[in-house]
């Protein structure tokens, strides 16, 4: 088990700090790292967990006293393991300073009640540290299990098509659940899975699982609501003369007609080829044209451009 950080260091207060000082320090750091203010930020979440643990202990006079006396082993003492043997150095310093006679509870998993976070399917529980009700980490009076929030990352194609996903979840106990992702979910959508949160106590019903959908950035498409946008390069002569080109869509390629006289930045609409909507139907796809010129031209091309320059009356600056 990793060594517990010194709670006073975590909060940045002296060991004789008053209750007010501790609260003030906690609030200041909580504003910075609170998960509700940093959604999706794993580092902030981890910082907040440590901060919360430190504050929970130091804001409770009894726990603080035990912590001051027994350091990081205070939980074991409180849980009834008794005071460490003679020779143990208290005040949270023994294990860190590594005295020869030091007594280390290192194998005792104090934090086993804290469940872990991730699986290989891009499923990420990020709010287990919060309780289901108003109280922190405690069951509500009714015994209902905790609601659990988690992030689920999907590709744009998965969000478009929907489909079944198997998720490994580690809340109160590891379990595997299958989720039907409905077509038409979007970045920021939420899916509620009733009864898949924490287990209830004393016969109470289980909590719910809330999945926050996050869409991975797509290499080709930008999402604008139900619509998709993509950029397509065309040659100068295609812009002038018009052309039929292959355009990517979320379901494969289609033929797109570039009208004669197309401009760079012009958007062409592919009606009904955007994302599936939750309520049925599809959005549109917009193809933004970008006229590109060849880096190198051969002699014949150069001659034709020279000829064009000679005969053309076009002045792009007028």
């Amino acid at each position: 088990m990793a060594k517990t950080k010194d709670y006073y260091d975590v909060l940045g207060v002296k060991r004789d700090a008053s209750e007010d000082d501790i609260k003030k320090a906690y609030r200041k750091l909580a504003r910075k790292f609170h998960p509700d203010l940093n959604p999706g930020d794993k580092a902030a979440e981890e910082q907040f967990k440590v901060l919360q643990e430190a504050y929970d202990v130091l804001s409770n006079a009894e726990d603080r006293k035990l912590y001051d006396q027994y350091g990081e082993n205070w939980r074991a003492v409180k849980a009834g393991a008794g005071a460490p043997p003679p020779g143990w150095q208290g005040a949270g310093r023994s294990t860190r300073e590594g005295g020869a006679q030091g007594f280390d509870f290192g194998d005792f998993d104090f934090n086993s009640f804290r469940s872990a976070g991730t699986d290989a399917a891009g499923f990420d529980i990020f709010e287990e540290l919060f309780g289901g009700g108003a109280g922190r980490g405690r069951a509500t009076r009714s015994g209902r299990g905790r609601d659990v929030e988690a992030e689920l990352e999907l590709s744009l194609e998965e969000a478009h098509r929907g489909g079944r996903r198997t998720l490994q979840m580690q809340a109160d106990e590891p379990k595997t659940i299958e989720v039907n992702i409905p077509q038409g979910v979007r970045d920021g959508s939420m899916i509620r899975l009733p009864g898949q949160g924490g287990s209830g106590s004393n016969g109470g019903e289980p909590g719910d699982l809330y999945l926050h959908i996050r869409l991975r950035p797509h290499p080709v498409f930008t999402v604008k609501g139900d619509d998709l946008e993509t950029e397509m390069a065309i040659a100068p002569w295609e812009a002038v003369l018009g052309a039929k080109v292959e355009a990517p869509t979320i379901e494969g390629k289609v033929e797109l007609t570039v009208p004669p006289g197309a401009k760079s930045g012009q958007r062409l609409r592919l009606r009904g080829l955007g994302l599936n909507k939750r309520t049925g139907g599809r959005g549109d796809e917009y193809v933004r044209l970008k006229i590109v010129v060849p880096k190198d031209v051969n002699a014949e091309e150069r001659r034709l451009y020279e000829e064009l320059k000679r005969v053309s009356r076009f002045d792009p600056r007028k």
């Binding site: 109280g135 509500t140 409905p182």
Partner: peptide, 23 residues
Amino acid sequence: MMWTNDLDEPLTCEVVAKTVGAR
């Protein structure tokens, strides 16, 4: 496991209060 799209489902304040442990 079926997905439930009931986040728009209207609940009474009583039910919401009970769920979140508030008055």
